[in-house]
């Protein structure tokens, strides 16, 4: 019983850290918050593993720790540190308060969806499932609501975290190969997007997504 409480509680922490990733002004701060969030996810994996008795989840948590808590934030930190666009400002499409309200709405919506679904394997984890689904959409929200192209990377990573968690909840006995796929995907995608971001900044000296149409032929 307590594990479930823990798990659901940690999910709430997830939302908060996600909000911090979305709303922080500088990219390097987002990287740190992202590392924190990934750490929460790792802990969630460990609890899930203890609860479902699945050995693979322990392995998953270990690899997720290496890639998402250590490697990816490190990449982001080193590459984004040099990129700074003064004109962009915060790059937010709407004020922070509205973003928070939007996030809340997303979470409520996801609860509604998940409650309508019957899942024998994760009855008690429905809140966590709803949170992970909401996480996915939060990532999307980040992409849409932020004009800074570096934030798009974070939005993608949030989406990825959300889907990872959904997978862990719904299929705890999945083989290790899936985890390897996700880990590779995380690292490479981030690396590529970071390189792209660097080159765009080198070309335009701007990180504004709205200005990207000038790249067109």
């Amino acid at each position: 019983m307590h594990e479930f409480l823990f798990i659901n509680g940690l999910s709430g922490l997830l939302i908060i850290t996600a909000l911090m990733v979305i709303l922080s002004k500088k990219a390097i701060n987002s990287a740190i918050y992202y590392a924190a969030q990934s750490f929460v996810i790792v802990v969630l994996f460990i609890f899930l593993g203890a609860q479902t008795g699945s050995g693979e989840l322990y392995l998953w948590s270990f690899t997720a720790f290496i890639t998402k808590v250590l490697l990816v934030p490190f990449i982001m930190y080193t590459m984004f540190r040099r990129l700074d666009d003064g004109e962009l400002g915060s790059g937010q499409v709407m004020p922070a308060a509205f973003s928070a309200i939007g996030a809340a709405l997303i979470v409520i919506l996801c609860y509604a969806v998940v409650s309508g679904v019957t899942l024998p394997s994760a009855e008690n984890l429905k809140p966590a499932l709803a949170i992970s689904l909401a996480h996915f959409f939060l990532g999307l929200f980040c992409i849409v609501a932020q004009r800074n192209i570096l934030k798009q990377v974070f939005g993608y990573c949030l989406m990825e975290n959300g889907s990872h968690l959904t997978l862990a909840i719904l299929a705890p006995n999945a083989p290790e190969l899936v985890e390897i796929g996700i880990a590779t995907d995380a690292v490479f995608a981030v690396a590529i997007m970071a390189v792209l971001g660097t080159r765009i900044f080198g070309k335009f000296n701007s990180l504004d997504a709205g200005k990207l149409t000038t790249l067109k032929g």
Binding site: I143, V144, Q152, G210, T213
Partner: peptide, 12 residues
């Protein structure tokens, strides 16, 4: 629109 983020919305 020209902005890829709107396209992401369309996809989802």
């Amino acid at each position: 629109g020209g902005d890829f983020r709107i396209y992401c919305l369309y996809i989802v």
